[in-house]
Design a protein around this nucleic acid. Structure first.
Lengths: 135, 135
DNA sequence: GTAGACCTTCCAGCGCGCTGGAAGGTCCAG
DNA sequence: CTGGACCTTCCAGCGCGCTGGAAGGTCTAC
């Protein structure tokens, strides 16, 4: 199976598949006599795994580490479990940051609603934003 | 006031201030006879504004657009209000994506808790993750 | 034999907000 | 006059996951 067919089958581009190979997610496949990559069909399930893991929020580096464990014959279960919990913690952190920013922005939106542009003087640059800590 | 003093006063580095100038957030200041940047003290409040706007989640490009309006003599109020609402919408979107990913990860964590590594076969790569769409 | 669809490699850039380093100039204290 | 603290410019890289393009090779259909 050539790279274009594999790409179509997996909903990726040939570029992306070459990139995954270079990133260590895929083994280099055998080549045809003309130098074309010639993939066995099992690669589709490996790529499906990569997609599943990505949609779970894992990075390519993490996915590579899982695949490397599996390729070396070990069950990556506990490694995967750790990664999952790390990502959950990371998501909580990012969500709390977003909530903080959202609170700040809502305050600004409230202030903006009560702002009259004609009273906005140049010295402040912008009284909606700028006054928050200085005024 | 030289760049290092301004940096100290604003809690930034000289590098960052030069970068801001190059990014169009600061006007190029006059120079001393030796070629050093010589800032008027008002620049501190401009930099404070940049910091306030950044902590509200605005990008440097957006902040530049606000400053450009102000520099041209217009009150940027309505522009700023638009930006605030766009960012609020963006935050909601990102939070809902994070919630979705979190739900997926929690499902995986539950599955992981019930997984016995010895039953994990190579064909699946990882039954915790990989089985999610193919199991 | 030729068009064109596919493949190959390599190098570069995206966005974002800086940060680091090299190679050199300026200014002040001792 | 020397050291060193500061400044200047320019170029490069970070992380992340691709994506684009150039320059060329291969295979198939007509």
């Amino acid at each position: 199976m050539r790279i274009g067919d594999l790409a179509t089958a997996c909903g990726l581009t040939a570029k992306t598949i070459r990139f995954y190979e270079q990133a260590g997610l895929l083994h280099a496949p055998p080549r045809t006599s003309g130098g074309y990559r010639d993939y066995p069909s099992e690669v589709t399930s490996r790529l499906a795994f990569v997609g599943d893991a990505q949609s779970a929020g894992l990075t390519l580096a993490e996915i590579r580490s899982i695949l490397a464990l599996r390729d070396s014959g070990e069950a990556p279960c506990s490694h995967v479990t750790n990664l999952i919990h790390e990502h959950l913690a990371d998501i909580e952190k990012r969500m709390s940051e977003l909530r903080k920013t959202r609170t700040a922005l809502r305050g600004l939106a409230d202030r903006a609603a009560g702002t009259d542009p004609s009273t906005c003087t140049d010295a402040d640059i912008c009284s909606i934003i700028g006054g928050s800590t200085r005024g």
